[in-house]
Design a protein around this nucleic acid. Sequence first.
DNA 1: CGTAGACCCTGCGCGC
DNA 2: TGCGCGCAGGGTCTAC
Length: 274
Amino acid sequence: MPELPEIEVLRRSLEPLLVGERIAGVRVRNPALREPVDRRRLGRALRGRQIEALRRRAKYLLIDLEGGRTLVVHLGMSGRLTLEPAAAPAARHEHVAFRLGNRRRLAFRDPRRFGLVLALPTRRLAADPHFAHLGIEPLGPELTGDRLRRLAHGRRGPVKGFLMDGRLVVGVGNIYACEALHRAAIHPRRSVARIAAARWRRLAAAVRATLEQAIAEGGTTLNDFADGEGRSGYFQVSLRVYGREGEPCRRCGRPIRRLVMAGRSTFYCPGCQR
DNA sequence: CGTAGACCCTGCGCGC
DNA sequence: TGCGCGCAGGGTCTAC
């Protein structure tokens, strides 16, 4: 499921279905996620409380409850969060389930268990270690070419790693880093020390446009979600380079290449990315 | 300090 | 058909 657009699409689709509902109970089948789930704390923080709002910070989904509590969910690499009929049997890897009052349950499924489920006091979210170090939101007004240029000051590494560093800019994962760099015509290996102001502006615009387009296209899977199928939206997104090794660049026709950076597949066009 | 690599874990598709 | 390998959208920690 997860890069920022997928979480944002999930947030928008769940919001009308969850706001006003009450969490009747929490069931933890397997607490061994990225951090161990504390059954008692989670149950005590959530049980009986009504859901007031759904927010997002970086790739974290924030479910605000009455009484100043927030349910924090991170999907890791393989997490899904879906609404199921209460009577439906639990799917494989459904590690946590939130029983709702409307004969449904909110099911957290995550085969690889890189995800996260915890409850925090709403007012202490920003200071919590999970959030305190996070960088700027790429869809907000903070993301400008000038801001990126200043963030890069004193750094030398490749621009792809810079984009994916959540302490600087949040929400840009491996797929959309590749996509945004192609849109901006910048080579993923280019050092941030060798990017001038105009190129930074191009990159900021490309990141924003890439994420916004993915959200718009992901929105078409909303109905899937409401049906409880929880299908990924990736197959709908028109990717320019990711997963297209050997196929022609849609801009210049040269074959897309794949290389490995920091252990992650990186796709780019050798013809038009400099 | 900034950066690269290992690691956490399961499932899937591929070549043999 | 079965097996081993490489790969997968995230984040954190350690070692240089």
